[in-house]
């Protein structure tokens, strides 16, 4: 009866601790709905509240959605960059960020066991997560992933976007910025403020970032802007400005995250 009460979101007032524990175990097994969150907000595990783009109480649907998300995250860690619809991209970003911040825990054994639940291909993904990615993001506190919007998909017109691991081998923003700098240098123009800001941000925490960026710029020159004379008219120049001037976030101050009391002790 209790189980049905939870399933249909009935407001059953339960005082005994045993029954509360039973609710909790049910929610852990089958995920949860919005209605259940209202019943016991403290006991819901973070990974089970993944109902943002569809709200459903059906356990089968929730399991399917979990598997989908696991697949997406696995693909992201394996290939460093994936293209999906925007809603899925945001969910994937959330889970991937959480997985990478797990690697920063002192107790690696529990961290691995927690990470196992959210990822397929354990033999391939877990060593990468706790080896390569942990080293790569040692200096970062958060923001390990980036979502870039794309044009809507052909066919069903669904909004698409790219999810990518920051400082990875397939970072679209890194490559596009290198292309922009290559074009400006080939045209003999000055690099504008926004691009300068982007270059600084992209190369700051990357392992030998500036050198990599330099080589990529030279490659882009060969790849796309070898013969500038032929398409000089088509390329943007200093006379062509964006309709709205880009505004940099100069007022934001970055503050270091305070260390947790438990970990330090």
């Amino acid at each position: 009866m209790e189980i049905f009460a939870v399933l249909y979101g009935l407001s059953v007032v339960e005082n005994s601790t045993e029954k509360k524990a039973r609710y909790r175990s049910f929610i852990l097994q089958h995920g949860c709905s919005k209605k259940v969150i209202k019943v016991s907000p403290n006991h819901i595990p973070t990974l089970e509240t993944l109902n943002t783009y569809t709200n459903s109480c059906n356990p089968r649907e929730i399991k399917h959605r979990r598997a989908l998300l696991k697949n997406l995250v696995t693909a992201l860690i394996e290939h460093e960059s994936i293209t999906t619809t925007h809603a899925k991209a945001k969910e994937t970003q959330r889970l991937a960020d959480r997985l990478i911040s797990l690697t920063k825990k002192n107790d690696i054994a529990t961290a691995t066991s927690l990470a196992q639940a959210d990822v397929f291909k354990h033999g391939q993904i877990l060593p990468k997560l706790f080896g390569e990615l942990k080293d790569r993001y040692a200096n970062r506190v958060g923001g390990f992933t980036r979502v870039l919007r794309l044009e809507p998909r052909i066919g069903d017109n669904a909004p698409q976007s790219i999810v990518e691991l920051v400082d990875g081998g397939r970072e679209m923003k890194f490559w596009l910025t290198a292309r922009i700098v290559a074009r400006l240098e080939q045209q003999g123009l000055e690099v504008d403020d926004l691009t300068k800001f982007n270059v600084e941000q992209l190369t700051k925490l990357r392992a030998n970032g500036p050198e990599e960026f330099r080589t990529l710029v030279e490659r882009m020159k060969l790849e796309f802007y070898q013969n500038v004379e032929s398409f000089r008219d088509n390329l943007p120049s200093e006379n062509l400005k964006a309709p709205t001037e880009p505004q940099l976030k100069k007022n934001i101050r970055f503050v270091q995250r305070p260390a947790k009391a438990e970990e330090s002790a």
Partner: peptide, 12 residues
């Protein structure tokens, strides 16, 4: 900014 064609703002 790299090819000079029209695009939507805030998208690639």
């Amino acid at each position: 900014p790299s090819c000079g064609h029209i695009k939507r703002s805030h998208t690639l």
